[in-house]
Structures are given as structure tokens and as C-alpha cells.
Amino acid sequence: MNRSDAMGDLAHRLARDLDAAFPDFVRALQDRVYSGVLRLTRRRGEAEEITQEAFVRAYRALERYPAEQVRSLALQPWLWTIALNLCRNRARSQSRRPTEVELRDHDDQAPDRTEDEAIAVSDDEWRRRLETLTEPVRAAVVLRHVVGLGYEEIAEILERPAGTVKSDVHRGITRLRTLLDEEGVRP
């Protein structure tokens, strides 16, 4: 079963028995949502909160929707519209609170603190690079290449024409390549 068939099957199961199918829905999409949100927010803890909240909101919506509507949902783009809204709201509320101390979330169970530090440095570097892109371009690049969504799906999520999304992604990648080149990063 390919990915979109699997999602269609999941939508049918969610329509039939929400509580029984919901754990599979979370497990199927949590890594992709978290990976994307992580590159669109400022901290790992924040990305975790937003991912969690996106799933909780999705559940509340699925509870309300008639079965017919749930069955026809394109689950992944739909979940992403919720997650992206949460990212935007978070960014807005942070721009109103200009100076926020950057607190690093340390996982107590992490075996190696230096590994943590390396991840944190890499997070910061990528955040700085991605923040040089405008919001729709950054979202398109992340959804296309970190999350792995198709242009049609991204177009639906961002409510922009697929052609525009495609050229945004192209422009974003070119910009990132220039940045990486300037930093002296080599393949």
C-alpha cells in the first residue's frame, strides 16, 4: 500500500471509529509533523507543544465532522493547515514579546550531552538560514524537502497556486545554496 492509499484507508478508519483509529493516525504522522514544525519554530520544546496541540485540535475537529467529511479528508494536508496556523500564531505572539531568553530543552535521558549540543548548534544554524526566507517560501521549502509533501498538497495547505509554490521552493533552495556556499559548506 503506497502512502496516499494508506492515508485514505486511515481516513476511512477514523470515520468508522475515531478512538480506535486515532492512535494510528498520530503514529503515522507525528514524525513528519514534528520534523516540519521544528524548522518553522524557534525551539524543540515549542515544536513539541505545537505538534501535540495540532493533533489535539485535529481530534476535536474529527469528533465534530460527519463521517462522510472525515472519509474524504486529505489527512496530511488538512493536519498541516492546523499545524501551520499554530506556528504562525506562535510567531505572532513572540514578535510582541521581543526579548525572550533562549532556553534549551535538554532531554534528561539523552546519553550524550555533547550530542545534544551538536544538535542545538545545527538547529540554530538551520534556523538562521531558513529565517532569511520569507514566510511562504520557508514553509514551502520545509513542506517540500523536510516533510516530503508534493507540490499539489503544499498548494492546498498554503492556499497558493501549485506553480507559485514550485517557483517559491526553487527560489528558496537557490537562496539556501548561496548561503551554504558563503559559509564554506561543501558537499
Binding site: P23, L38, Q52, V147
Partner: peptide, 14 residues
Amino acid sequence: LATSAPPHLADQVL
């Protein structure tokens, strides 16, 4: 950059 969600995330959602 694709990574795994934190281990307790799914449980917390459920």
C-alpha cells in the same frame, strides 16, 4: 533534517 518526534509525544496526545 527529518527526525523522530519526542518519545512521549504520542502518549501525551492520546
